[in-house]
Design a protein around this nucleic acid. Sequence first.
DNA 1: TTCGGGACGGCAAGCAGTTGCCAAGGTGTT
DNA 2: AACACCTTGGCAACTGCTTGCCGTCCCGAA
Lengths: 336, 336
Amino acid sequence: MSTPTIYDVARAAGVATSTVSRAFSNPQRVSAPTRELVERVATELGYEPNPHARALTSRRTQTIAMVVSDITNPHFFEIIRGAELRAKASAHTLVLVNAEESPRIEREQVNRLSRSVDGFLLAASRLPEGDLAELAGTHAVVMVNRQVAEIPSVVLDQREGCRQLVTHLSSLGHTSLAYLCGPRESWMAGSRWAAIRDAAAESGVSAVRMGPFTPRVAHGAAAADAALTTGATALIAHNDLLAIGVLQRLAARSVRVPDDISVTGFDDIFAAELCTPSLTTLGGTHANVGRAAVELLLEAAAAPRRSPTAVQQLVLPSQLILRNSTGQARGRRGPA
Amino acid sequence: MSTPTIYDVARAAGVATSTVSRAFSNPQRVSAPTRELVERVATELGYEPNPHARALTSRRTQTIAMVVSDITNPHFFEIIRGAELRAKASAHTLVLVNAEESPRIEREQVNRLSRSVDGFLLAASRLPEGDLAELAGTHAVVMVNRQVAEIPSVVLDQREGCRQLVTHLSSLGHTSLAYLCGPRESWMAGSRWAAIRDAAAESGVSAVRMGPFTPRVAHGAAAADAALTTGATALIAHNDLLAIGVLQRLAARSVRVPDDISVTGFDDIFAAELCTPSLTTLGGTHANVGRAAVELLLEAAAAPRRSPTAVQQLVLPSQLILRNSTGQARGRRGPA
DNA sequence: TTCGGGACGGCAAGCAGTTGCCAAGGTGTT
DNA sequence: AACACCTTGGCAACTGCTTGCCGTCCCGAA
């Protein structure tokens, strides 16, 4: 009556339950004719394996959790999309959890799910490295937008991207940059600043760091005000949300962009193209980041614990998207 | 050695496993002293119940699935956020799945998960009513952005919202509206058109429906071109994405918005405020929609099947957000 | 013809909980 | 004092599937 089990299938097909089980989860262990028989009977009966019963003994759940540091950030949205698609392609289920920018919540969520998923995708994790190492010891873990020794990861190339960004600004005549820094716990924030600093030194321009700022539109005002005090002619915001907030504040203060000051962001979110002026930003194919991260995770989950294969730290190309928020430095305008 | 089970806890506490089990999942069935003893021993041992074992017999998974018709639409993002938050508050896990605008994929995904979740949130479901009724017969289901008889749902008030929208346009002197319709399978598209048609009749303005169009930015061009042939002076796009595409196309064709033509959208996505001109749109607190939907689902899942409580069809208020994409009808400009 | 070995299928013991049923003990009533 | 009844904890069957181990059977080689 209710949903059929392997027992029903086994009886109907005249084989043992173990054969039915193997036909599904280990097909090459069963001869082709038997397998086909089982499959046919199963579809006739409308049999679907019970994922919980399966997980109970096999400890494989076909589920992966994606922990996002802040689900309100549209940037992650693209990554989630890519991850969901890839997970589905491998018949895996994606569980979405929000860490709300809090290491404590992040840890809680991970603990809560630790029994029910095959592995974790940690996007922009705010967890300290010690916690991550511990977690990676017991679970398959892939970091997204953060690199940690000994843990596989996928990031967009910040070093090269920031170099391009700084070079772009420098070639427009800017000699003084300000980086409006993201949260203290953000690995990206540190990584970007280091890359910007180095690239600035290389290009012979000065760079200062302001912040940290919460990377949301609402905090752009504070960031803009702080940046204006530095006298920098080009502002590199930690992400597009912050940059958009900066643009809004600058407009409110009648500072013209890019005439008086140039502004850039990171991520190339959908809105970056639409805001006024449209935002020069360092983008990349975020959906690919999500996809690649799932692939790494599936590999890690399949491999025997701590397999000899090197830990993969994927660095996907980023791309500088030039739009209208960057221009010639003040005083370098017109046919120089 | 490995993770402790109720057996370990039971032995350490000197009680039966059933007592441990009850202490966790049915606390009032156990006397306070015993419960405290069990809890203390459990925390000492670091015991965590295994969700799969629990699900296997109890058939409760503490997990809900959210099926989204098109995960690339930022509008859903807000709903997902609200849902995730609410689910977490009740210690439930949110599984995210994408139906890719395909009824077939939607059905597949639902089937795949039917054993592993307590219920489904179907956002803008493209499934025919028959399928939905069947699904609702076996699972807890809550519709989001769609109403179906006998199934609980949460929607934003389209009827009143569309009336406000049409009134707004009519009061600006527009007498001829075009609705750029969403996908054929979209309940919202039908519902909006009906509301617009009625409101237009009431206000004595004409309204035509064009489309269907895929509600993405890229399809705005086709929609805009089609709309221009109608001579309508106000365009109501099925959602903000389409509206933004329309704006872009109109700009490319040197049609001024709102001077020559007014454009509105639905959803009030983040980008609606930032595009040029900023978009008049019918919004609402989408996060609340997600939250309310989860609440309804938790109720439905907790209630004994087909309980006598009436099926709740929640209609949350929508709100008209006036921005710069709507203005006086052509020829009605200046001090009339 | 015999024998080693691989392929295949079956047995049964888990996996980690839940829950219906029962019995013991305590309380209140008559 | 006897009896009914409620509370509490334990027993054990069950959930649905996986998997280590074993026994056949069949094939080719000696």
